[in-house]
Design a protein around this nucleic acid. Structure first.
Ligand SMILES: [Mn+2]
Ligand SMILES: [Mn+2]
Ligand SMILES: [Mn+2]
Ligand SMILES: [Mn+2]
Lengths: 224, 224
DNA sequence: TTATTTTTTTAGACTAATCTAAAAATTTAA
DNA sequence: TTAAATTTTTAGATTAGTCTAAAAAAATAA
């Protein structure tokens, strides 16, 4: 078993992951302040770390201009995300955790360093393609197959589909979805879109109708 | 779920575990140099840490006189050992690792902090009482049931028993035991003790006879 | 296009964990 | 019971990651 990639510290890994998430959800180029906000640090600390990651050739960094991940940096980030999501599957599928309970534990487990471990875990779980929140799991080469999903708020009247993901991962949000029966795999049909407040009336699993707020509709992802 | 014990750093946890192991295998009182050797640090660094652990009331420390664990320190150490051994069981039983491959990974996993996680893992594994090396697993209260075992080197001629543990955990030693068929659960009968070099002729599983060196005989533990 | 606001970086300091070298205490040996 | 050797502690530095305050650059507004 040979060591293919360099070791990065716990902290460096968290920065890389943060930059990856920001660059895929917002603009490709990520700013110092954005990173500071997510990592709960100050801009000055971020600047220090950006210099270090740049020295290690994990990011492309020009003063005052924001950063992007290099190929190496992107691979490192994807590997951490792979580990995070596989551990989340393990916690839910094997240990019986709820989907709103696993994130914090996975934040710790994602830093365990063993390629053999994570590949065997992957096999043990049956090589899942998505985590408990519907997020895709990169394969051992870092390839990620993004499914096309739209938010309920973007659906048209009488369109239907299956709940396949969420764009908000807080415990309070996920527990609410549980309560409303809006878990992954649920069939949703848009009955009516209320223009006044952005709320949406949906039919759940071809049975009851329910009104959900715009906030909810914006954060539930549907595969048509 | 309430937080019962304070958080300790990764490093503090490793010192506590080291002190526990030294105080149970050697004398109760542990010296600075012993700790330095196991933790791969220098005596000066150990002294610094001992002051910190003493301030936190995890050890009883008097300058120049060595340390013992307090009740809190012992509980913290046992909790880490519990996690280490449960993870080792998981790696072997669920992911198919060999007993010589799991220690280093468990050294990382033992620092994951979640009581809920470890208790669920315990249940998932069927509440095992020993790890893959035969070492007892403390229960969730820290209680440990030590089985009485003796080394092959201490057995008398024509005594027999079951291999139930090892007192050496290096990969090279464990792989050798595999090769010789001396894994946990193997039945051993002492045929003859060679005085000249301390080697022992044993019968394995009521079948073939084999001569093992004193070094081997000293590190294999038997339950009579 | 100049002035104001916002963002980012630098300067200097702090903490945890480590080190080397030297001093102090303890143990062992003569 | 004194001298020598060993062990342990202190003193003073170093590194990673963080902070606050101030300076510099960029973006926005007048
Ligand atoms: Mn997560
Ligand atoms: Mn997830
Ligand atoms: Mn081990
Ligand atoms: Mn073990």
């Amino acid at each position: 078993m040979f060591k293919s990639n360099y070791m990065h510290s716990f902290t460096e890994e968290n920065y890389l992951k943060t930059i990856y998430h920001l660059s895929t959800t917002n603009s490709l180029v990520v700013s110092t302040n954005q990173i500071a906000e997510i990592t709960n640090t100050k801009a000055a600390s971020v600047t220090d770390m950006l210099k270090k990651l740049s020295d290690k050739k994990l990011i492309n960094y020009i003063r005052y201009q924001g950063v992007t991940l290099t190929e190496n940096g992107k691979n490192a980030a994807l590997n951490i995300i792979r580990k995070h999501r596989l551990w989340e599957v393990f916690l839910v599928e094997k240990l019986g955790f709820k989907w709103d309970e696993v994130h914090d534990i996975a934040e710790e487990l994602e830093h365990i360093n063993s390629e053999m471990l994570i590949n065997r875990l992957d096999d043990f779980l049956g090589n899942p393609s998505a985590d408990p929140h519907g997020d895709p799991i990169p394969d051992r080469k870092g390839a990620i197959q993004q499914k096309k999903m739209i938010r309920i708020s973007e659906m048209n009247q009488s369109e239907c589909g299956i709940i396949s993901g969420v764009s908000e991962h807080s415990s309070i949000f996920l527990k609410l979805l549980d309560k409303l029966g809006l878990t992954l795999g649920t069939h949703v049909l848009v009955r009516e879109k209320i223009e006044f407040d952005g709320s949406v009336i949906i039919q759940i699993n071809e049975q009851i109708d329910q009104t959900i707020s715009r906030e909810l509709a914006k954060n539930i992802l549907i595969m048509l």
